[in-house]
Write a protein that binds this DNA or RNA. Structure first.
Length: 482
RNA sequence: GCGGGUGUAGCUUAGUGGUAAAGCCCCAGCCUUCCAAGCUGGUCAUGCGGGUUCGAUUCCCGCCACCCGCUCCA
């Protein structure tokens, strides 16, 4: 079990070892933004790659995509995100509680128009008509396209990568030979103006998502929903997350987003925040909502031009009666049937998973009366796979060790170190989570063997230099299944 | 956004209205044949900006950031 109990300890660990730093720290920091350091960037990239490998590389039914962060504004009208602009928030001057204007109700003895705040009652403290000026609630980051200030268009940084997939659904259908059921996967940055950020990298306004949109025939969606639920849960377990720290939690009906028929969260028991269990990933049954919405959006494009490209004035047209034959429909050759597919969406947070893997791997143990700190990363995630040392800095050992390190680097992340006593070097690698260390000693000159030292057990084995690469590969690839 | 708390070296902690201290880490050298050894030397800090003061890390104000609890959010 990880000994860490406080978020402060995690933050400190991350900074000390070069995993995660506060963004713009030399300028006092920027709220909610973080940078990944030398070890952290490797770790995060490995998390990303592990996801991609299991979701795309290892499967015949999923293809990859890398869509742009900036998209046509109408995408966000269709998806429903742009309508968030219609939301205004006020704050009660008495109790400081914030409420959405459209959620406020009139006091019992009064009535007026929805916009008249003087009769509205604060749901928190029952004060009537004592609110601040309504403030627009901006979920999405805005930016301007076009260098000429007089000729720019307001664009939004995507609040989810999913819409890039829906917008390319037709392209992928037309350019590949995918057949339903199939998925499109994507990893990338998203941006949301969260009202509150919190808990280190757990909830930030800029974050990285790994999303799969898995398209299936209506009626098979429950099956795929359950399949993905299990698959995604096991992904974390197979990469070393302790089972007692992970769970699945089904959303209640009233908790569901407007587009979802079902949703389950993969939650990790973080050692911070209220309630401990925090969402790493959501698996949602988005039904045919998104593709149908985009079909409405496509048919609303004349409005976009007529209304002066003002998103707030565009009203999506009604859905066509034969929408199931629309441009984003799918034709099933076998069944000779055309329909809008249902979508199962496993949507994972890369930053959150990275943090969970880091926290879960952390361990302390007593060795000869002293504390050994280590990170028990799964080798697939470990920033450094193998470290190579000369036992001492003489007798040609450094040269031999360097040559070995150089040859291993072609195959995996490998680190060479000759500073200080070898015991200290082992412990340094424990802190970085390096699974295996190779030490060149006097035996190498004598009979060509080196010593391999294991992070988790501290045990050592003698291995022939000729067999070293195969040995290491075997250990790294078959971790856990002895 | 509200309330509370915190901010001294990479880390953990001292301390002071008058030269900012230590341990660990780190770096260099010596030594060293298997788990943070030893010796010598060395680098590095009062979050930012104002004010009071002869003098502010210390007192005051503002800002920034983080943590805890709400609120908000999916």
């Amino acid at each position: 079990m990880a000994k860490i109990t406080k978020l402060d300890d995690i933050v400190s660990l991350c900074k000390r070892r070069g995993f995660i730093f506060q963004s713009s720290e030399i300028y006092g920091g920027l709220a909610s933004c973080y940078d990944y350091g030398p070890l952290g960037s490797e770790l995060k990239r490995n998390v990303r790659q592990a996801w991609w490998k299991s979701m795309v590389q290892m499967r015949d039914d999923i293809v990859g995509l890398d869509s742009s962060i900036l998209m046509h504004p109408m995408v966000w009208k269709s998806s429903g995100h742009a309508d968030k602009f219609a939301d205004y928030i006020v704050e009660c001057k008495k109790c400081n509680a914030r409420s959405r204007v459209d959620h406020l109700e009139d006091a019992p003895d009064k009535s007026s128009t929805p916009d008249d705040l003087t009769t509205k009652v604060c749901p928190n403290c029952s004060e009537v008509g004592n609110f601040t000026e309504p403030m627009p609630f901006r979920l999405m980051f805005e930016t301007k396209m076009g260098a000429n200030a007089d000729d720019t268009m307001t664009l939004f940084l995507r609040p989810e990568t999913a819409q890039g997939i829906f917008a390319n659904f037709k392209n992928v259908l037309d350019s590949t030979r995918v057949k339903i059921p199939f998925g499109i996967a994507q990893i990338g940055k998203s941006f949301r103006n969260e009202v509150t950020t919190k808990a280190f990298t757990f909830r930030t306004r800029e974050f990285e998502q790994a999303e799969l949109e898995f398209f299936c025939e209506p009626g098979t969606d429950e099956y795929w929903y359950n399949t993905w639920k299990e698959t995604r849960f096991n992904w974390y377990i197979n990469l070393g997350i302790k089972k007692e720290n992970l769970r699945l939690r089904e959303h209640d009906k009233d908790e569901l987003a407007h587009y979802a028929k079902g949703c389950v969260d993969v939650e990790y028991k973080f050692p911070f925040g209220s309630g401990d269990w925090q969402e790493l990933e959501g698996v949602a049954n988005r039904t045919d909502y998104d593709l149908r919405q985009h079909q409405r959006g496509i048919r609303s494009m004349s409005q976009w031009y007529e209304k002066g490209r003002d998103l707030t004035k565009v009203e999506l047209v009604e859905e066509a009666p034969d929408y199931h034959k629309g441009p984003l429909s799918y034709f099933d050759e076998q069944q000779k049937k055309r329909y809008i597919p249902y979508v199962i969406e496993p949507s994972a947070g890369i930053d959150r998973s990275t943090l969970a893997f880091l926290v879960d791997a952390y361990d302390e143990e007593e060795v000869n009366g002293k504390t050994r700190n280590l990170l028990r990363f799964h080798p697939e995630l470990a920033p450094i796979k193998v470290a190579v040392f000369p036992l001492v800095k003489k007798d040609g050992m450094p040269e031999a060790a360097q040559a070995i390190a150089k040859s291993l680097k072609k195959h995996f992340a490998c680190f060479y170190d000759e500073k200080g006593a070898v015991g200290r070097r082992y412990r340094r690698q424990d802190e970085a989570g390096t699974p295996l260390c190779v030490t060149v000693d006097g035996d190498y000159k004598e009979n060509g063997t080196v010593t391999v030292r294991h992070r988790d057990t501290m045990e050592q084995e003698s291995v022939s230099g000729d067999q070293l690469l195969n040995y290491l590969r075997d250990k790294l690839e078959n971790w856990g299944n002895k």
